[in-house]
Design a binder for these strands. Structure first.
Lengths: 231, 231
DNA sequence: CGGAGGATTGAAGGCTATCAAAGTCCGTGG
DNA sequence: CCACGGACTTTGATAGCCTTCAATCCTCCG
């Protein structure tokens, strides 16, 4: 029996909508892999040439300058697609933030399969377009927002990410959630230093906008204040 | 006779590779349009719902905050695709930087046509992936680079963009080129103010790294110095 | 020649980075 | 149960880069 049949992201990942026969063919090409928190899956400028679906856990995509400065350029959650199909080698490292499980494919195999299955390519296109939208919104944040605006925007983003898709189409943002990021990683997302991030967290808490039950937990007390701060 | 047959970007835009019959069908759905420098083609959060190919000229994609700060999140050159197919409304304005000519389609028409033509969707996917790569590299620049590094990176980017694809595969970067951007627009690209951009230009010129024959012209005198500065 | 928009230059201030130290949390082992 | 070590976080003081505010300059055109 193919492991895909019981896959928890079966209906959300790009595999969704493929017929049983196709799923089976795909599962023959791929294999599952665990990645421990902190462990890399792909290195920057790597030529290991693999792509993957995230089954469980959270991973970061990062780029670095020669002298070690780091910027997180993307975050992959369960059902997200990782890697760079078609031609180019990815210019980003992928590292697990939490223990994670992924479903990996050799890029060549995946490329060939995708070209033969337009429905899969269409799903990939929709995802890539959505990711491009997100990265453009983040460019706005990185280029033009102040530190307080950056953190407020980030927290609203997280609240949405961990919200419940409750009644039909509407998404209810989470009031309380656990960050998959350390303070340093939040800094690398927002283009700030860890000290500035810490100060902004402290300030939001002091102002009664959020509460911080523990290092990684956030409770949104005054969402409209956050929205006003987000710019 | 379809205007596509004489289109200058016929072999580079996403239309490349379509059969004559398909090109004809596409050309029935689209229409050509001129956009004067400074004139908008799409407004942020617009629901005009159109997509386009750039035939001639350069356009900017921008997002803005409520209080008027602007960030350029993309630049479209001839043969580039503009707009957001499939579902979402684009969250970016598109404004012509130079007089431009584009080939526009109603988004619904284009979506339907694309779904029926996997080869077109594949081209679109490759483009979108490349654009995502570019926007991630830009996130690194916006989040982590200093003003001198930003300008050096930008100038190298421009030199490549306006370089000649000479012998076979290699691209020879341009030594001299004309910017399609004002100083303010360079600032909006780099996440800086116009004054800082101006100071960095002046500094590079004073250091003998570049020459500035006129406001919009740049001559790269010491490329390796630029590369060293780019970080 | 004069005006207008864009670009450059200058001076001052603020926001964020940097450097440094203290504090907190958590797992380990006595 | 508590002491200890280490990583992560917070806090403080200072410095510096870039912005802001303001004035001047250039260049193109009417």
């Amino acid at each position: 029996m193919s492991p895909c049949e019981t896959c928890v992201v079966r209906n959300r990942a790009i595999c969704a909508g493929l017929h049983d026969r196709e799923i089976h063919a795909l599962s023959m090409m791929g294999r599952r892999r665990s990645v421990a928190a902190g462990e890399p899956l792909i290195w920057e400028d790597d030529d290991s040439l693999l792509v993957a679906n995230v089954i469980e856990g959270v991973l970061k995509l990062t780029t670095s300058t020669g002298d070690g400065r780091e910027q997180i350029v993307g975050v992959a959650y369960p059902s997200d697609f990782i890697g760079r199909p078609f031609g180019q080698t990815s210019r980003a490292s992928v590292v697990a933030l939490t223990d994670a499980r992924v479903c990996v494919f050799a890029r060549n195999d995946f490329d060939r399969f995708a070209r033969e299955h337009p429905e899969l390519e269409h799903k990939l296109l929709e995802r890539t377009l959505a990711e491009l939208d997100r990265s453009r919104a983040w460019m706005m944040l990185l280029g033009r927002k102040t530190a307080p605006e950056k953190l407020a925007t980030f927290l609203l983003d997280m609240a949405d990410r961990f919200g419940d898709p409750a009644c039909s189409t509407a998404l209810v943002p989470a009031r309380r959630f656990t960050l998959p990021f350390s303070r340093q990683q939040v800094a690398d997302l927002l283009g700030l230093t860890i000290e500035t991030v810490s100060r902004q967290f402290t300030r939001l808490k002091a102002d009664g906008v959020i509460d911080l039950p523990s290092r990684r937990d956030v409770e949104v007390i005054d969402r409209s204040a956050l929205e006003a701060l987000a710019g």
